[in-house]
Structures are given as structure tokens and as C-alpha cells.
Amino acid sequence: MATDGNAERPLFSAVSNSARQLFLLLRCISFAPKAQVQITQKGLRFSAEESQVMQGLVFLEKSLFTSYTYTKPVNENIDDDDDEDTFPIFQISLSSLLETLQIFGINDIKDRSTNHEASYGANGAFARGGAASAFETRFLGMTGMCRLSYAADGDPLRITLEETGVTTNCELTTFEPEFREEILLQRENLAQKIIMRASWLHDAINELSSTSPSRLTIAASPSAPYFTLSSNGPLGSAMVEFSKDPQLLETFQVPSRTVNTYKYSLIKSASRAMEIASKVSIRCDEQGVLSLQFMIEVEGGGVSFVDFRFVPYLSQDDEGDEEGDTVEDVGSE
């Protein structure tokens, strides 16, 4: 537990002028009831996992907060301030955190701008324009202040919310982390990188749901058909095909044909990010590990990123029944 000195100077404290902004970002990974939190000097890293075959990552950069303070523990000998293994990490109830952040009431954001001016640079990095986003106050109304603090290892995560003169204090119990390994995407061995509007991916995934599919197959090829999403289910099969038109696929880097299959319900779990993001970068490495990285515009003209990783079905199991399916475990590499 924290000492009196630590209580006066917590290990971490931050203030945001928008509890709604934090809520909408963290809700993107609400497919799991729990999340791991890592406090770093550059921001907060939230991660959720599903059966070692899906992970969702949200990084709340310190620029999202009006104030952000991380104090290195005095009893810890840390030589490298950038070493992630030295930063505090703990697990919390993500569902409880989301309930706390919306305690003053947050309506679902159904308005999604279809006129984003954001684009990607030549190197594949996201670049942003001045387009409207779901986070702007004209969509959300007035925003409430949120203060986060963590006194010391083992202490609860404290949350204070203030809006129109009303203050609410909450403490969330912290637990030992259950996982530390990420599902690795081999960026140096990418088999494909495609950048497109997130709303188009969202529409395609929803269209395929009509067959009640259990699996989603993603195929990319340097020749037609260039990029397809297909599904099979008890109600039939369906396929959505995208042409190579730069108006559809802003970036298309596919040296050779790739075909990988994933659990449809897991891909569907990224829908909240698809709904509010302006762009998505769809990357796949040579092992078939899939990354969906969403660029989400936030208040003040900035951007945040939400990254999902998915492990594919093993190719030899593609014809097996659902009960016998196994997936390639690359998360322990």
C-alpha cells in the first residue's frame, strides 16, 4: 500500500478535460471484461486479450491530457527510462472503468463523418487533415473533467469526475497482470499493407454477417481480384470485392497473393473502432497475423490509434469443423 509520502505524490496522475473522449477510445477494446494498464512517461497503454488469438491495444498519449505526471519509484533502480519492462503494469475491470467514465451519461455516437480529409503519407504513416470527427463537441456537447491517479504498486486506480459542479470519486481495484506477451506482427516481413476508409471495412463486415458466418477469409493479390473479404455460413456464402482504384484503396502493397482465414466474431469485435475511425491500415505478415490499425481523430485536431491483432486459423484446419479448429499460437514468441 502507499505510504503517506506516496499519497501526497502519487506514482501517476493525469487530468483530461473530456471523460467522453477517454470513454470512446477505451470502448473500442471492450470485447473483454478486463484490461491491462501500463503507465509510461509517454502515456497510458491499455490492452485486452481474447484466448491468446486476439488483442486490442489503445495508447492514450500524454498529449490527450491537460496535465500528465509520472514519478519514477524512488526505491527502484532503473537505468533505461524507455524500457517498458520497468513501468508499472496492472489489470483492472474494463467494464467498471467504462461505467465510471460514462457516469454522467454518454449517448452512443451514431453520427459518423463521411467527409474526412485525413490521408496517409508515402511511407504508409497516417497524416491528418481538418475534417470533423465523432469526438468534436458539436457532436458530443459539453465535456466533463476526468482525473486519474495511481499512488503506488498495489493501490487502486483512482478516478475523479467533475461536470457542472458535481464531483464523483471512484476507486478501481488493481490486480496482477495475466499476460505480458503481445501477438507479434512481423513488420519486417509484411505480406500485405492496405489502407482504406474504416467505414468501408465496417460496411463490408456487416454485409457479410447476413450468412451468419463463423469464419472470415481475407485475400489480397497483385492482380484481379485485388482485395476480397468472403464468408461461409449456414445461410450461404457472401463476398465483398474491392478494386485497386486509389479512391478505394489509398495504399495497396501486395507483392504476392495471400489468403488467410480468421474467426469472424473476433473481427466483428473491432466494430466500435471501425465506426468512429477515419482510416484503417490492414497489415498481414507472412505467418498470417493480421493487424487492423485504426486512426481515430480526437478533440483538438489530434489523432489516436487503436490496434487489433488476430491469429489466423492453421491452413490444415480450414476444412475442419468448428469444434476441432485450432489456431497458430504466435503470441508467445
Rank of each mutant, 00 (worst) to 15 (best):
69 T>E: 15
140 L>A: 03
68 Y>H: 07
138 R>K: 14
102 Q>G: 09
65 F>R: 02
68 Y>P: 02
68 Y>M: 05
122 A>T: 09
102 Q>F: 05
58 V>H: 03
110 K>H: 14
98 L>F: 06
99 E>K: 13
89 I>F: 03
126 F>C: 01
138 R>M: 14
60 L>Y: 06
149 S>D: 07
125 A>E: 15
146 C>Q: 01
104 F>N: 06
131 A>L: 01
118 A>P: 00
96 S>T: 14
60 L>N: 03
142 M>F: 10
85 D>T: 12
99 E>N: 13
128 R>F: 13
133 S>E: 09
82 D>I: 04
120 Y>N: 05
139 F>V: 15
107 N>K: 12
63 S>W: 00
87 F>V: 02
141 G>N: 05
119 S>D: 08
65 F>I: 04
69 T>C: 06
70 Y>G: 03
86 T>M: 11
143 T>D: 13
129 G>Y: 03
136 E>Y: 04
58 V>T: 11
62 K>S: 14
139 F>W: 13
122 A>C: 01
137 T>G: 02
137 T>P: 00
137 T>C: 12
141 G>M: 05
69 T>V: 14
106 I>N: 02
111 D>Q: 09
82 D>Y: 09
118 A>W: 03
146 C>A: 08
65 F>M: 08
147 R>E: 15
135 F>Q: 13
64 L>P: 02
111 D>C: 00
87 F>D: 14
64 L>N: 01
102 Q>C: 12
65 F>Q: 06
127 A>V: 15
89 I>S: 10
126 F>W: 12
74 V>F: 06
92 I>Y: 04
143 T>W: 07
111 D>Y: 07
93 S>A: 01
70 Y>A: 03
76 E>Y: 00
97 L>T: 07
61 E>F: 01
138 R>Y: 13
145 M>H: 01
111 D>V: 12
116 H>K: 04
83 D>C: 02
105 G>H: 03
145 M>S: 05
74 V>H: 04
124 G>P: 02
91 Q>F: 08
58 V>D: 07
91 Q>G: 03
102 Q>E: 15
88 P>D: 06
135 F>Y: 11
97 L>W: 08
63 S>K: 05
147 R>H: 12
61 E>L: 08
108 D>K: 09
117 E>K: 04
82 D>Q: 10
137 T>Q: 14
